[in-house]
Computed example of a mutant assay.
Amino acid sequence: MDTQGIAPFELYAIRYARHGGRKAQDNYMGTVDFHDAESDLDYYVWVARRHSEIYVIDTGFEEQSARERGREILISVKDGLALLGVATETVEHVILTHLHYDHAGTLDQFPKAKFHIQDAESAYATGRCMCHPALRHPFNVEDTVSFVRKLYGGQVEFHRGDAELAPGLTLHLVGGHTMGLQVVRVWTQRGWVVIASDATHLYGNIDRQIPFPIVYNVGDMMEGHKLVRRLADSSQHIIPGHDPQVMRRYPALSPDTAGKVVRLDAAPNHSTE
């Protein structure tokens, strides 16, 4: 894509929750033995901002889901967005990478938003695959019902494959983790950054080419790793969906937001490259 004349987006990751005590088999398919294999998971939402344009990427989960699944909320998504001066009540565009509970809760807090999703993801979350408990488990039925209400309220925009939402911001269907998982490619001051979301939960999944165990289609997940690499300017431009290293690799928005909000449009910290 020709980027001449395209203004760059600011790009941020907001860390709102965590899950500790994970084992290697929770993060990697098969038997693995390497440093960081037993990494905890952090939970993020992301924001792409260019002047008055604001795109929120995923909406996280609330306290009830945290209790039910043994996760720890560090800050509500609403309050996390407020650290960037973003009010959920005024957001006009939300990109849902997929509909798992940790990416598509709190939809009701975005009353004015248009929700962008892949055709395949809606079909997956409300179709025959949900007859299988193993595939259904990462979804929250109440969140799915909220999504359907948004659909019937005229607030959902469907995409089939690649789509440009704005110059410098595109969606790309990868599947794998779910049938309709999409990643977000964002033009920033340091080049093309890809919010990979759960196309790769951890840096180790894509770097070592080992699938995450929660998966709809392993082949699509592995092909998704290749697509993410092609879309990003380098491996330093790939942002995984749940890696705690993101908070260490990138500079905080301010001293007050250390451990809460980092800038993904800035170069990674030299000590972690």
Rank of each mutant, 00 (worst) to 15 (best):
D2Q: 07
D2V: 09
T3P: 06
F9S: 04
L11M: 05
L11T: 07
A13T: 08
I14Y: 01
R15V: 12
Y16H: 14
A17V: 08
A17H: 00
H19F: 11
G20A: 11
G20H: 11
M29T: 15
V32I: 10
D33Q: 10
D33P: 06
Y44M: 02
Y55I: 08
D58Q: 15
D58S: 15
G60A: 07
F61G: 03
E62H: 13
E62L: 10
E63N: 10
Q64W: 06
R67E: 11
R71C: 04
I75Q: 03
V77M: 02
G80E: 08
L81W: 00
A82T: 11
V86E: 03
T88M: 06
E89W: 06
E92D: 13
H93F: 06
I95N: 06
L99I: 09
Y101I: 13
P111R: 06
A113Q: 10
H116T: 07
I117V: 15
E121P: 11
A125N: 00
T126Y: 02
T126N: 11
G127N: 04
R136F: 03
R136I: 09
N140I: 11
E142T: 13
V145L: 13
V145F: 10
S146Y: 02
V148C: 07
L151C: 10
G154Q: 08
Q155I: 05
V156I: 15
E157R: 15
R160K: 15
A163V: 13
E164M: 11
G168C: 04
T170Y: 00
H177N: 04
Q182T: 15
V183S: 01
Q189N: 09
Q189E: 15
R190P: 12
V193E: 01
S197Q: 10
D198M: 05
A199K: 00
A199W: 02
T200R: 05
T200S: 14
L202P: 01
R208I: 07
Q209W: 12
I214Y: 03
V218F: 01
V218G: 03
M222V: 15
E223P: 00
G224W: 00
L227E: 12
R229K: 12
R229T: 09
L231F: 03
L231D: 04
A232D: 03
A232F: 03
S234R: 05
S235N: 12
H242E: 12
H242P: 04
H242W: 08
D243Q: 01
D243P: 01
V246E: 06
V246M: 06
R248I: 09
R248L: 13
R249S: 13
A252K: 08
D256E: 14
A258M: 10
G259Y: 03
V262E: 00
A267C: 10
N269Y: 02
S271H: 07
T272L: 14
E273I: 14
E273V: 15
